[in-house]
Nucleic acid binder design. Structure first.
Lengths: 215, 215
DNA sequence: CTGTTTTGTAATCATTCAATTACAACATTC
DNA sequence: GAATGTTGTAATTGAATGATTACAAAACAG
C-alpha cells in the first residue's frame, strides 16, 4: 500500500530551485497575510500553504517581517506596473479618449484585485500607516499612481479623485465579501451592481471561479 | 519629593465606576486595535492606554475577542447613527437640495473619522471579511448605509456610488497618513486637496490638534 | 462597627510561535 | 567517487501573551 515505512510516508517533498520556491512562498504569504494580517498570520500557516516546512520559510526570508515587506512591495509594484502598461498602450484621439482610458485602467485594476491576495495585501498596507517602512511604501505607491493619472493620463483633479475613489470602494466591497450574501439580501447585489456596473460580471466570474477552485 | 515609599509610588489608581471604566477601555481599545489590528494588539497595550492593569481589561470583557467585537460594533453604530441624525434634520426643497444633503452627510462622515480610532476600527472591520462575526457586521453595516442613501436620502445609484467611493478614499488617505509627508512631497497635499476639497481644513485641523495633543 | 460588594492588582500559568540548531538527502563539481 | 553546495526537515527554545487565581483595599449597607 505504501513504500518503505508503515508511517504516513509524507511524500519526499520534491526538490525545487530556491528561486521558484521563493515565488511559491510569496504567493502563499500574500493570501495568508491578506486574510489574517501581519500579526495574525503565522509562518507555519504560510509554510503549509506553500507546501513546505516552517523553518524553510524563515530561512528563505530571514524574518517574518521581511517576508511581509516583500509581499507588500510586490503588490504595490504589480499595481503600478499594471497602470503603467495601460498607459504605455497607443491611444487614438477623440471625444471619448478619456472615457476609454478610464475604462482600460479600471479593467486593469479589477483584473489585479481579482487576486484576493493582492487585494488584501494592498489593504493591509494601507492600514499600516503607523509602520515606518510599510507606511512609507504605501504613501509612495499611492502618490506614484496619482502622478501617473495626472501627468501621463492627463486627467483633471475631479477625474482623478473619482477614479481613485471608485477603486477604494471596489476594494472595500470585495474585502467584506459582499457577493457572499447575494442570496440572503438582494440589496447586496444591487450595491455591487451600482458600484461595478459593467465590470460586475468580470468580478463575479473571478470570485465564482475561485470558490469552485477551493471546493 | 514623593510620598510614603522610595519607589515610584505608582499612584493608588483612583477607583472609578465600572461603567465609566468600560468606556475608557473601549476608547483605548479603539485606538490600539485600530493601529495594530486584532492580533497585533495586546490586552496589556489596551490596559496601559486605559491606565489600568491587564487582568482588569480581560475581566471586564471576558476575552480579547469580545472586546474587539464591541469596539467594531460601536464604530459601526456610530457611523450609522451619524448618518441617521443628518437624515432626520429638516431639509428645505430646492435645486441644490441633493448637493446640500451630500455636503452634510460628508461633513458628518469626516467628523466621525477624525477620530482615528473610529477610522481604523472601521477599516479593520472591512478587512475582517473572513471572520464570520465581524464580517457579517461589516456587511450588514455597509448595506444599512446603502439603504439609507437610497431610501431615506433618495439618491440615485450614481450619486450613492460617488458618495460611498469618496468616503472610502477619505479612509485610505487618512489611514496611510498622507498629511505626514506634506513637506517632503507637495503632491501629497495636492492629492489631499483634490480629494477633500472644502473639507480639507477640517481634516487638517483635526490631525494637527491630535498631533499637538500627543506632543 | 461589621459584613458584603465593588474595584483593582500582583503573580503565575499554559500556550503559541518566530527563530535556531542540528541533521539528512539530493545534486553537482572536480 | 569524494568533496561541496543546495534543498529540505525534525526538534527545540525563548519570549510573548491571554487568561486565571489569589489577594487587597476602598466603598457601602445594615
Amino acid at each position: 500500500m505504501n513504500e518503505t515505512s508503515g508511517i504516513a510516508a509524507a511524500q519526499p517533498t520534491e526538490r525545487i530551485p530556491a528561486a521558484e520556491r521563493r515565488e511559491q512562498i510569496l504567493a502563499a504569504a500574500s493570501v495568508v497575510f491578506g486574510e489574517r494580517g501581519y500579526s495574525g498570520a503565522t509562518t507555519d500557516q504560510v509554510a503549509r500553504a506553500a507546501g513546505i516546512s516552517q523553518p524553510y520559510v524563515v530561512r528563505m526570508f530571514g524574518t517574518k517581517e521581511n517576508l511581509f515587506l516583500e509581499v507588500v512591495a510586490r503588490a504595490l509594484e504589480r499595481l503600478v506596473a499594471g497602470f503603467r502598461q495601460v498607459l504605455a498602450e497607443p491611444r487614438e484621439h477623440g471625444d471619448d479618449e478619456r472615457e476609454l482610458l478610464i475604462a482600460r485602467l479600471g479593467a486593469a485594476y479589477v483584473d489585479l484585485i481579482e487576486d484576493r491576495g493582492i487585494l488584501l495585501s494592498l489593504m493591509q498596507a494601507f492600514l499600516s500607516g503607523h509602520n515606518p517602512v510599510v507606511g512609507a511604501k504605501a504613501r509612495a505607491g499611492f502618490l506614484e499612481i496619482y502622478r501617473m493619472l495626472r501627468d501621463e493620463a492627463g486627467f483633471p483633479p475631479d477625474t482623478i479623485r473619482g477614479f481613485l475613489a471608485d477603486g477604494m470602494l471596489f476594494n472595500t466591497l470585495l474585502a467584506i465579501r459582499l457577493p457572499d450574501i447575494f442570496d440572503e439580501d438582494p440589496d447586496a447585489e444591487e450595491l455591487m451592481r451600482c458600484t461595478f456596473r459593467g465590470k460586475l460580471d468580470l468580478v463575479l466570474g473571478a470570485t465564482a471561479a475561485e470558490a469552485a477552485k477551493h471546493a
